[in-house]
Design a protein around this nucleic acid. Structure first.
Lengths: 112, 112
DNA sequence: CCGTCATATGTATACTTGTTCATATGTTTA
DNA sequence: TAAACATATGAACAAGTATACATATGACGG
């Protein structure tokens, strides 16, 4: 299988030339990986309608503050949520509508 | 922090009532997790325009047949690709346009 | 049927990652 | 400034997973 002869050489050749940049594909996988955890999905859904502080997210979802904070960091690093400080609280919200679009589209696929 | 008092009790209460079904959120995370690997992303992109047999995918992407086959199984189990046999080859293609939509939307987000 | 080709599958391993516990940082209030 | 509160961070452990290698299954040609 080392001297493999493509069945469809034209398509293979076309892929060599037209595949998106390697780095972009990694970024794309990274993006989806962030969506690929139920804790983070829950957090994003919690923020779907309105902004919330960390404690309220943890309370609403029944998870520990630490766990929520760790995952918020992942979401923040990947620019999926933004935050602002308000006194002692830090208030998180979804970063842009892309996040809502992706969630909604995924939901459509799942709900069949 | 055990007797936590919500900052925004109304929002927390609303979340208790309005959060999507737990199981659906797990399914959603599972769906995105499948997209969250660069090998699988590459395979899906390879299938974006036209169907391909396993060997051609491996050849075009420069990966081993085994690795591609393993990942195709994941994609198949999650209904993201479908396949048909054609003689000795097995020809894979994207299962539906949801897959293309999700890839495209993710790409939009990444390409800024 | 036998050898060859295309693909699938089992297994072991190395790597990634989510959670918990403990603690640090930073803000407010008394 | 000390105590209380909200959040972040570090480290350790457990669980999941992608890959490579070896082998099995299945289809075709002679």
């Amino acid at each position: 299988m080392d001297d493999y002869q493509p069945i469809n050489p034209k398509a293979v050749q076309e892929l060599f030339e037209c595949m998106p940049n390697e780095e972009i594909l990694y970024d794309l996988a990274d993006l989806f990986r962030v969506f690929g955890d139920s804790t983070r999905i829950k957090i994003m859904y919690a923020l779907f309608e309105s902004e919330l502080c960390v404690g309220d997210i943890a309370e609403a979802l029944g998870m520990t503050q630490s766990s929520v904070s760790h995952q918020l960091r992942v979401l923040k690093d990947n620019k999926l949520v933004k935050f602002r400080r308000d006194g002692k609280q830090i208030i998180y919200s979804l970063d842009d509508d892309h996040v809502r679009s992706i969630l909604s589209l995924g939901m459509e696929h799942v709900e069949e």
